[in-house]
Structure formats: C-alpha cells, structure tokens
Computed example of a mutant assay.
Amino acid sequence: MMTGKQLLAAAAFLLLSALAGQAESFTDWRNGDLIFHDSNSSQSAAIRLATGSPYTHMGIVRVSTGEITVIEAGRTVTETPLAAFIARGTGEDYAVYRLRDLSKSDAGRALEAAMAFAGRPYDIFFRLDPDALYCSELPFHAFGNVGISLGQVQQFGELSINTPEGRALFLDRWQEHPDCRAQGVNREGCWNLLRGQEVVTPVSIARDPLVEQIYSGFPP
C-alpha cells in the first residue's frame, strides 16, 4: 500500500504528464484555425470578468512544413511556436475553433493579412484601430480583409466592466488614452467615454455562427 507521500508523488507525476502532453492533445491543425486560452497576463482577470469567459487571449494558427505557429497580438503582432503559445495559458488549457467552409485560399489570404500587421504594438486601450492591435482585433481585421466578418462589435458598456478589476484596468491608463486626451476630459469623463468605445472580444469570435469548436482542453 502506498504511503501518503507516495500517493501525492504519483498524483503530481500524473498531473505533470498530462500537462506535458497537452500540446499533443489535438493534432488536426489547419491554416486559419483559431486558438484560445486563459492568459497568465495581469489584465486577464479583468477580461475574464468583463466577458464571462475563460478565453482571455487568442491567435490564428499557421501550419507550414514541420512547424505549427500562432500569429498573435502580444507585445507586438508576431508569430509564436504553438507549444510556446499553449505554455503561456493557465494550466496549458486551450480550445480550438474552425471557420465553417473556410477555403484554403481564404485561409492563406487571411494569414497573409495577419502577417502584414507584424511588428505593430499591442493596443492597451482596446480600440478598433489597426495601428495597434489587441488579441481578438487581429483576426477581426485579418479575416475582415478577405471579406469574412468575425465576432460581434460591442460597446464596453455592454460588458461587465464596472468591477474593481475592470475600472482599475482602464482607469490606470486613462490619461494616455487617445480619445480621452482628444476630448480633454477628466478621469470620470474618460470612464464615461470608454463605456461607448467599440470592442471585439475573444468570446464573441468563439460564439460567431461562422465558427465551430473542434477541440477543448478546458474543464467542463
């Protein structure tokens, strides 16, 4: 019979083995697939509460000879090895969505459009302006450039942003927000302005009728 320490060690081994194999859990990757996870970034809690979803970061999958990468809007728009992208997610859980009836041609054109944004900075203000991009804005513009509209454009005020985490996320940055600076408003005036700002969230893309979930490693 195992001792308590042996049982804990065995459980830890099984957990680590499961995490190590997570990147291999799904293998049918295709160009243009969308991958979602819960990022370990400091703003993820606010995004999770605002959207009611564990999907706080996402990217577009690119499959080339011998390599699978994710085009994502992180610090900049860049191409990241799949395993590295997955490893940055909480618990290494991820979900994969696929556009219904996406042709190889349109997938390739969308990837080219996404890579045309390479090097652009992350948009900490979450504006729908492609000079700087946040995670779900990248596929919104990339697929939009090939005539495919993904996600629902909403106003921040429609999300659950009036939480301590939400207010902290946006109001810590308000003095540098381009629209608030242009309007010359104070802190509360900026907050009211932000409530009308348009945004496309990761979960709105996941819920789009044009896509379907084909894999999820998230707990039920």
Rank of each mutant, 00 (worst) to 15 (best):
Y134P: 02
Y134Q: 03
C135V: 05
E137R: 01
E137L: 01
L138W: 11
L138C: 07
L138T: 10
P139K: 03
P139I: 11
H141S: 02
H141G: 00
H141V: 14
A142H: 07
A142M: 07
F143Q: 02
F143H: 01
F143P: 01
F143C: 07
G144R: 09
G144W: 02
G144F: 05
V146S: 05
G147P: 01
G147C: 10
I148M: 09
I148E: 02
S149T: 11
L150Y: 08
L150S: 09
G151D: 04
Q152G: 00
V153H: 03
Q155H: 14
Q155G: 14
F156E: 03
F156W: 15
G157T: 07
E158M: 10
L159A: 10
L159I: 06
L159N: 05
S160V: 11
I161P: 00
I161K: 02
N162K: 09
N162E: 15
N162H: 12
T163R: 01
T163H: 09
P164A: 11
P164M: 10
G166W: 14
G166V: 09
G166F: 12
R167M: 11
R167F: 03
R167L: 12
A168G: 14
A168V: 00
A168C: 02
L169T: 03
F170N: 06
F170W: 13
F170V: 14
L171F: 01
L171E: 15
L171H: 02
D172L: 00
R173E: 03
W174F: 07
W174Q: 04
E176C: 00
E176D: 15
H177P: 01
P178H: 12
P178I: 10
P178E: 10
P178S: 08
P178L: 10
D179E: 14
D179V: 13
D179S: 12
C180K: 02
C180G: 12
C180W: 02
C180N: 09
R181K: 15
R181S: 02
R181P: 00
R181M: 11
R181L: 13
Q183S: 14
Q183W: 00
G184T: 05
G184C: 06
G184Q: 06
V185Y: 11
